[in-house]
């Protein structure tokens, strides 16, 4: 029976390996046909910024990987409003369709999960 899995992403991309590792595990989880959602708060919001070009720092651009997730039936992207606004970002700056939630709403959604994986 499918469980509700939420990946909680709180780190900026490229400066550490967290974002990339999260993406790997998201794809593995999807292969087991679980109900997967991704939450982005704090610096994790930067993981969804449009226009990433990491060629200059010789790292893999994982922007396209996020855009491919809906093909694996992973299309629940939640962004915490306060984190997004503190960084001067809007949903238009992000590379996938997201649902913007208040901190309280996100907290409630976290409560409703069977499994939370934190990155």
């Amino acid at each position: 029976m499918a469980k509700k899995f939420m990946f909680v992403n709180r780190k900026a991309p490229y400066g550490s390996i967290y974002a990339l590792e999260a993406l790997e595990v998201v794809l593995i989880t999807a292969a087991f046909e679980q109900e997967v959602s991704l939450a982005f708060l704090d610096d994790g919001v930067y993981q969804l910024k449009k226009g990433m070009m990491p060629k200059g720092i010789e790292m893999k651009n994982f922007g396209p990987s996020y855009r491919a997730l809906p093909d694996y039936d992973i299309d629940k992207f939640y962004v915490e409003r306060e984190s997004m606004e503190a960084r001067g970002l809007t949903p238009e700056d992000l590379l996938v369709e997201v649902e913007v939630l208040s901190a309280q709403e996100l907290g409630q959604l976290m409560e409703a999960q069977d499994v939370i994986l934190s990155f």
């Binding site: 991309p13 910024k49 990433m52 070009m53 990491p54 060629k55 200059g56 720092i57």
Partner: peptide
């Protein structure tokens, strides 16, 4: 550092 801005899609901000 420009390459770090570009990597994060922030070079125009």
């Amino acid at each position: 550092l420009g390459p770090d801005l570009e990597a994060r899609g922030l070079a125009d901000r």
